[in-house]
Structures are given as structure tokens and as C-alpha cells.
Design a protein around this nucleic acid. Structure first.
Lengths: 197, 197
DNA sequence: ATAATACGAAACGATTCGTATCGAGCCTTA
DNA sequence: TAAGGCTCGATACGAATCGTTTCGTATTAT
């Protein structure tokens, strides 16, 4: 019954982390990442600065934690769909989720991660890798059920699709619509479809 | 002979800008972008802070100026080459130029630009757009001389190639070698080559 | 000469950072 | 039940950087 906390001492508050993350995300979405300082997060959430520093190395790390937890579940893959539709749908959801302040925040987080190895690693492991795994799985199962020819290089295909999406989002700073996504997915996967409708 | 400075008053020093840019780039390459503060740039270059703020809005803008001026000329397109070789060569030069501290700095600059519209615009106009123009030109001339079939969508092709490159550089944080570049270019342009050797 | 502009040097208040200290609370172990 | 260990929120701290401003001097056009 009792919690098996093994370590002596007062256990960590279960409410501190959620409160801090909520405040951090709100501040960052509202006034940009630089606006989410440790001091402000502490003031808004009621969690002491010392507690925040005890759990996160810096403010962006708190924001990143909160961001992944909120936005991550918004991008789903539906393995039942034909491969083309599956990608259009999931990539579309990604683009949609990143419109407005959330996209701006992702860009700022990615930017901050460039200089800090810990954030970089967290970014790859918690944001990029999961979606790549799902994409890889989608391609492989499409091959397995004969929808795609086995000559596809899944890694390269994902590079091309996600590369173009993030390129527009973070480098050339231009918008993406559903038509572009369809053309992109078709250009990358089309040549390998066994039967085109 | 005399300079036609039209406006009255003391003309701007011609040596201040080069000295400041040199110092800014050195500082940023050595200790990362955050290390290139306005104060330090002023101290190292001997140019007063007030002068720096008179010409640039902030420190990263100075570094970006210097970066483009130094690295820009390093990436050349050779329109005499077959289209495939042309891209392999120019993209290879890009990747090569961005190995080591320079790539880290580009990442940091791109990251900083995410939050500041002025830097964003400068980044697109002075870094992305010029290379896209050359790439577009290369593809169009390859079409004109019958090397590529006219069905290629040059914009999408450039999205795919540069997208994948910057994706590796800034998002998935993985390395790129010449073999990957060749495979990438081939995957994007190969299907449209009129005669494959 | 006069006005206008740029220069370098220095000081300014504001902000953020990360750390340290404090008394009090809570849990495990002996 | 007592002791010790870890966490909590609150608060204070020195250091660093920011962007602005002021100052006296230098250089040019009118």
C-alpha cells in the first residue's frame, strides 16, 4: 500500500512540477521563450526558485518539458491508413499543431538547443526520434503488406519529408499548406507505390 | 578624388566596421555566440560600444554580418558541371564549410534568428535566398540543355535537398558525408535525368 | 566660423542568472 | 520515540550583461 520511496527525507512535492511546467509554458507562449525566466516561473507558479533549480538546469528546460508533454500527443500516426494518407495526416497534424505561438516556441526551443548539449539531446530523444520511429514503422508495414516496393530507403525518405517540413519552419520561414504536404509525400513515396490509384 | 559624402559632419570611420566584425566573429567562433557580447567586441576591437549600437541593433547582428561575409564566398556553384555533380559539389562545399565551429555558429545564429524578425530576414536574404537562386538557375539551365526533363519542380527539389541537409545539421544533429550527399541528390534529381550514365 | 555628425570613454539603472542560507515539514531507519 | 536526511518556500546575494545616456573631442560641409 505505502509508497516505496526507499530514500529517507521528505518526498518531493507532486504538485510542484506540474505547476511549474504549466506556468513556464504559459509564459513562453505568451511572451516568447526569453520571457519565461526562472524568477517569473517561480512567481507565477508559487514554486520556489531553489526547487526549480533542484529539478531543472535552467528555464528553457522547464519549458521544453512542458512543451513536449502538451504538444507531443497531438501528432498521431494511423497505421490503418494507406501509407500516403498516413503521412499526409500525421505531417498535417504536425504542421497544424505548430501554427501560431506553438510553432514560434518550437523554433525558439530548437534555437536554444543548438548551444546546449543537454537540451539538444532531450530534443532529439523526446521530439524527433519518437516521430521517426513511427514513420519508419509506417513505411516498413507498408512494405510488408505490399503497398510499397522494398527498394525504399526509409531513413532517406523520412529525411526528405521531415527535412522539407522543418526547412520551411525554421530555415526559409515560409508557410506550408495541405497541398504542399500532399505534393511532398507524393514526390517522396509516389515512385515506390506498387499500385497508384 | 575627394569622397563625396554629401552630408555634413564627421564621416563614419571606415575601419570601425571591419575591426568590429573581425572581433565579433573571432569571439563567437571561439567561445560560442553568447560569448560575443557587445562589451567584449568593443574591448577586443577598440571600437566604442556606442559606435557599435549606432550601427547594429545587437551583438548577434554583428556576428551574422561577419559570418556571411566570411563563409558566403566559400560555397560556389559550377554551372559547367553536369547537374548532379554541380549539386554534389556545392552542397558538399556547404557541408564542409559548416564542419566544426562554423557549423556550430551557424546553428546558434539560426537559433537566435528564430526570435528576432530582423535577424530572420537578414538570414533569409543573405544566406538562404542567394543559394536557392543559384540552385534554381542550375536546374533551369540543366533543363534548357536537355539534361533534365522539364517536369522537375525546382522549388520542391531544392526544398528536398537543402531541407535534408539543414535537417541533419539543425534538427536531428547527425553527420553528413559525401556518400549521403550523392545518394540524396540522386534520389531527388535522378528520376528526371534524361540519360543516366 | 558654425552647424552637424561621428568618435571613444565612462557611468547608469534594470534585469537575469545561479547559489546560498534559513526555518519548517515530512519520511525512513534505528 | 528519537535521530537523521531530504524537501519545501522565502529571501538575499554577487556577478554579468544589457541598452541608453552623457561627455568632450574630432572631422566634415556650408
Amino acid at each position: 500500500m505505502s509508497s516505496v520511496s526507499s530514500r529517507p527525507g521528505r518526498p518531493r512535492s507532486t504538485s510542484a512540477a506540474p505547476k511549474a511546467m504549466r506556468a513556464a509554458l504559459d509564459l513562453a507562449l505568451e511572451g516568447g521563450l526569453p520571457h519565461a525566466t526562472v524568477e517569473r516561473i517561480s512567481a507565477v507558479s508559487g514554486v520556489a526558485k531553489s526547487t526549480l533549480y533542484r529539478r531543472w538546469p535552467n528555464a528553457p528546460a522547464i519549458v521544453m518539458d512542458a512543451f513536449f508533454e502538451e504538444v507531443g500527443p497531438m501528432i498521431a500516426y494511423d497505421m490503418q491508413l494507406p501509407i500516403h494518407d498516413n503521412f499526409c495526416q500525421s505531417v498535417g497534424a504536425l504542421v497544424e499543431a505548430l501554427k501560431g505561438p506553438r510553432g514560434q516556441l518550437l523554433r525558439e526551443l530548437l534555437g536554444t538547443a543548438q548551444a546546449e548539449p543537454d537540451l539538444r539531446e532531450a530534443f532529439v530523444e523526446r521530439w524527433i526520434a519518437p516521430r521517426r520511429r513511427m514513420g519508419q514503422e509506417a513505411i516498413e508495414s507498408a512494405i510488408a503488406r505490399g503497398e510499397l516496393r522494398p527498394e525504399v530507403d526509409p531513413g532517406l525518405a523520412l529525411d526528405l519529408i521531415y527535412g522539407a517540413v522543418y526547412y520551411h519552419l525554421t530555415v526559409s520561414f515560409t508557410d506550408i499548406d495541405q497541398r504542399y504536404i500532399a505534393a511532398l509525400v507524393d514526390r517522396v513515396l509516389g515512385p515506390y507505390l506498387t499500385a497508384r490509384t
